[in-house]
Design a protein around this nucleic acid. Structure first.
Length: 682
DNA sequence: TCGTCCGGCGTTTTT
DNA sequence: CGCCGGACGA
């Protein structure tokens, strides 16, 4: 029996409302995760609901994992194992693995990341012979936008999204077709396709939708404010045979509209799901009253939001501080100075975070942290999987699994250099087009197409076929390290870099990769096939990699300051927050202002403020170096509009050198006091 | 086939 | 100011 006595009345109400559509509006720091983990535990343990029939969906693997862990702490491993707690995308892949042949794909499909996508679009634009240079990224995001609105490449021309007068739209019409045909030919899908195809599957085969909807009788969606149209369609499919949908979210923390998140999903929940119950969690357990007071004022300006006001029992008079600094260097300097002081006071560095709007702002901070010998970590910098050498090895694995995957094939073809360059590739590409076979099949069928290349071609295809066998017989880590050995990858790394340190780091990355395969194998035993491992890699869901990379330990929090963007800070909390660069054109970002997305920037600011438990510093610069030029800056409207409300103290740190205004006054006072004392003595 | 040089561009990014 | 991608030359 799970006791809900530890929940407040609203949380408890949320945990006990099981049937029908429910919207839990969970403000920042209102105990959301606690509430939904108890809700699940209550369903299973107290109401005897079969855990197999419960589906919990979140956005990140990390969130899904955390949920799993916390439910498991309440329910025990045996029951919690039967729950399905996953991300939208891994759920989609799971379904597609079983059903994708219905849509004309092979089962061993590859998932393309954005660099793969961009290279196809580059090819398409070349074919289109665009005299005006179209921006690949714009084209890609438009295609993604179309997919997220359920428009396929064949629908596009006849849809309301297509304007025949707009040259961009006409180009995109061509590129979209080219792109989808290439993907199908490579037996690959992109991230949007994972959801797009799942929705299409549900629409074209209602019995399939019914099957999954009957399997999952109770559905929970976390971070509902970030769902897009496609995810909404998916939810409709999953609930087609029942109405037990519980969504959890906070419209004030919707910060992913640029990825298609549609705020109306949460704003109009009741009209989309009639009879819905709405439960508000408004007690904040995280921040002091002064931090929350500022946060509430900042966000209340937004028009399109659900009415709610967070409150807390944690009273405090310590107002958030805003520092005016001279420039980015000065900003970094006094921020780190303050952190050093805290460090001297015995504060744990893991309780401190520095947040910023964009990654470029991290640079001066990093410099000053290093200068002051303050340990730090940067969240969301270069991803492990994005490192070139790791991607290379992964590409080998993808080709071994799916030789139709031409992008991976082309990636590894001449890595390490084996004399298969552009000319050779083009000849084989031409042949494969003529015969309408895959590039790989062209290698197999016509190895002597170019007489003096026969040997290298045969050598290459032999590696692939050999390892297709090898992976069946031997363990994952064994096979991968054998592959690395066979292709002489380490020599290749040595040859491509003259910096000895870089060589070591890159070799080490490969070792980490192999170790992660070993870990994956030890966790998953007989299920640890190359196919399943590759799928984890494709969904960037290998916790082993992260663990190995960060050496995280649950009990010991590493003594490091955390640096990250506002986006990646959502869901986290720290005793002390430094929110830097709170300036016009930085937060709100210039481009968002131009495109009318100021509301979302305001939410971003709100997210940043509400990360802080005890202490909040915000900084802005008089001048910021942008692209080599010094540009004058002003305090962000989000704070400037509240100047008279006494919600924060503004300190000009440019005039007191390294001292705060208070310190300077103190100094002046004691200076005069000493002077007086001296005079008195005389 | 590979390396170098030059020009353009520069936000956030759960999968 | 610095990075990345395309062009062009050795």
């Amino acid at each position: 029996m799970i006791s809900l006595a530890g929940l407040n009345p609203e949380q408890r109400h949320a945990a006990e409302t099981i049937e029908g559509p429910v919207l839990i509006l969970a403000g920042a720091g209102s105990g959301k995760t606690r509430t939904i983990t108890y809700r699940i535990a209550h369903m299973v343990d107290n109401l005897n609901i079969d855990p197999k029939s419960i589906l919990g969906v979140s956005f990140t693997n990390k969130a899904a994992r955390e949920m799993k862990e916390r439910v498991s702490n309440l329910l025990g491993n045996r029951k919690s194992r039967k729950l399905t707690l996953s991300t939208f995308h891994s759920l989609g892949v799971k379904i597609l693995k079983k059903e994708i042949t219905k849509l004309g794909y092979y089962k061993n499909f590859t998932i393309f990341d954005s660099s793969d996508q961009l290279s196809i679009i580059r090819e398409a634009l070349k074919m289109y012979r665009a005299d005006k240079s179209f921006d690949r990224k714009v084209v890609l995001s438009k295609i993604g936008y179309l997919k997220n609105n359920g428009i396929s490449h064949t629908d596009y021309e006849h849809s309301s999204f297509f304007d025949p007068e707009d040259p961009y739209d006409v180009a995109i019409e061509y590129v979209y077709h080219f792109y989808q045909e290439k993907l199908a030919f490579y037996n690959a899908i992109d991230f949007d396709d994972i959801l797009f195809l799942t929705v299409r599957l549900f629409n074209d085969f209602p019995d399939v939708a019914k099957k999954y909807s009957e399997l999952f009788q109770f559905i929970m969606i976390d971070e509902y404010q970030d769902t897009n149209n496609l995810q909404f369609q998916l939810i409709l499919g999953l609930t087609s045979s029942h109405n037990n949908l519980c969504v959890v979210g906070d419209d004030d923390q919707s910060i992913y509209s640029f990825r298609g998140a549609d705020l109306s999903n949460i704003l109009d929940f009741e009209s989309k799901f009639p009879g819905a119950k709405v439960i508000k969690l408004e007690e904040n357990y995280r921040s002091t009253s002064s931090i929350l007071g500022l946060a509430n004022k900042v966000i209340e300006i937004n028009k399109e939001r659900r009415d709610k006001t967070l409150w807390t029992k944690k009273k405090s008079d310590a107002l958030p501080k805003i520092w005016l600094t001279a420039n980015t260097d000065h900003e970094a300097e006094i921020t780190i100075e303050q952190i050093v002081q805290y460090q001297g006071d015995g504060m744990h560095l893991a309780d401190i975070a520095i947040l910023y709007r964009s990654n470029t702002q991290a640079q001066p901070l990093e410099e000053h942290l290093r200068l002051s010998n303050v340990p730090y970590r940067i969240l969301g910098g270069q991803k492990f999987y994005d490192k070139k050498e790791v991607k290379d090895i992964m590409a080998y694995l993808f080709v071994i699994l799916n030789p139709r995957d031409q992008l991976s094939l082309r990636r590894v073809l001449n890595v390490p250099n084996r004399g298969i360059g552009k000319a050779t590739l083009d000849t084989f590409l031409k042949k494969s087009l003529e015969e309408n076979i895959t590039l790989y099949d062209a290698f197999l069928k016509y190895p002597d197409l170019i007489p003096n290349k026969t040997e290298v071609i045969n050598k290459f295809t032999k590696i692939i076929t050999d390892f297709q066998e090898k992976f069946k017989k031997h363990s994952l880590p064994e096979s991968i390290s054998c592959l690395v050995e066979d292709i002489k990858f380490n020599q290749y790394i040595e040859k491509s870099h003259d910096n000895a340190k870089q060589v070591e780091r890159r070799k080490n990355d490969i070792n980490i990769f192999i170790e992660s395969a070993a870990r994956y194998e030890s966790y998953n035993k007989s299920h640890a096939t190359l196919e399943n491992f590759a799928q984890k890699l494709l969904l960037q869901d290998s916790q082993d990699l992260e663990e190995l990379n960060e050496e995280e330990d649950d009990d010991v929090r590493v003594n490091e300051v955390t640096l990250m963007t506002l986006h990646s800070s959502k869901g986290l909390e720290f005793d002390t927050i430094f929110l830097i660069g709170v300036e016009e054109e930085t937060l709100p970002h210039k481009r968002s202002v131009q495109e009318g997305g100021v509301d979302e920037e305001r939410r971003l600011c709100y997210v940043g403020i509400t990360r802080a438990r005890e202490t909040l510093f915000m900084t802005y610069c008089k001048e910021r170096k942008l692209f080599g030029k010094d540009v004058p800056r002003h305090l962000s409207r989000f704070l400037n509009d509240l100047k008279d409300d006494k919600l924060f103290t503004l300190q000009d740190r440019t005039t007191f050198g390294h001292m705060t205004e208070e310190d300077a006054n103190q100094y002046k006072k004691s200076f005069f006091k000493n002077l007086m004392d001296d005079l008195e003595q005389k």
